[in-house]
């Protein structure tokens, strides 16, 4: 059963098309890596899943439920709670501690009792290796640590699917690995993940499927082994030769 389905999804900013008839299904437990040159529409596609961007035409289904369009705000908000998102620039709330950031969703949105939420948050911070940093504020944490808090924050809502929008692009090279390791262990635990990334090594090793996008379209999708060793499309070969040689 698909957790996220794109059916013929298009999106334009003004007269500029960013997504053109994208159709894609993400099955439960799958890790799908979306790669491609910048400006290909990868982030926009991801942001349409929880409607941070509204798609212009087509349909996006989450667990079979359509999201967006003329949907009532209440239903849209409920659907968003089932989708976790991790941003390139972390976007932690600077006025809350690491623990506070992770507790915020459950307490404010799900009305989880504070004591319960605190326990869950502590367990999640431990899971991402930050048990000792719970009381620190984002300004006191490194980029890699902030991003791991952001992952814990998204997980606290017990999402059905996690979106990663270039989660390691803003990080110093030595911090990339600590975040990728957390993502990898999430994948191993069976989390459904939609990952926009420039980390080809990660895509090859962790993803169940790789999707190459260019000019707002899906150019090719395949299992990583085939995709990286024997891409079918000329566009894919050109992209791969450029990123793998650098």
């Amino acid at each position: 059963m698909s957790i996220v389905s794109f059916r013929d999804v298009s999106k334009t900013f003004g007269s500029h098309p960013v997504l053109r008839n994208v159709s894609l299904d993400i099955e439960e437990g799958q890790v799908v890596a979306i790669i491609g040159p910048s400006g290909a529409g990868k982030s926009t596609l991801l942001r349409c899943v929880n409607q941070l961007e509204r798609h212009s035409t087509g349909e996006i289904l989450i667990d079979g439920m359509p999201i967006g369009g003329n949907q009532r705000n209440r239903d849209l908000i409920r659907l968003r709670q089932t989708v976790g998102m991790v941003f390139q620039s972390f976007n932690l709330w600077p006025h809350l501690s690491a623990l506070g950031n992770v507790m915020e969703g459950p307490v404010t949105v799900l009305k989880t009792p504070v004591a319960v939420a605190r326990q869950q948050a502590e367990a999640l911070l431990k899971q991402v290796g930050l048990a000792d940093h719970a009381a620190k504020y984002p300004g006191q944490l490194s980029g890699g640590q902030q991003q791991r808090v952001a992952i814990a924050r998204a997980l606290a809502m017990k999402p059905r699917v996690m979106l990663f929008d270039e989660a390691t692009s803003a990080l110093d090279p030595e911090m990339v690995q600590e975040v990728l390791r957390v993502m990898e262990s999430l994948a191993a635990d069976g989390m459904t993940m939609l990952v926009v990334t420039h980390e080809m090594g990660f895509a090859r090793k962790v993803a169940d499927r790789v999707v190459l996008m260019a000019n707002g379209q899906v150019v090719e999708e395949d299992v990583p082994e085939t995709f990286f060793t024997n891409p079918k499309e000329e566009r894919s070969r050109a992209f791969l030769s450029r990123v793998l040689s650098s």
């Binding site: 929880n50 941070l52 968003r80 998102m85 620039s89 976007n91 404010t108 952001a150 924050r153």
Partner: peptide, 26 residues
Amino acid sequence: PTGQTEAAIAIGMGPLQTLRRIVIPL
């Protein structure tokens, strides 16, 4: 920064929750 409010929206907060918990304190 828009990212702060986007994070609140993405986590599933409604407009009033976002205002009360994130926008006003910040």
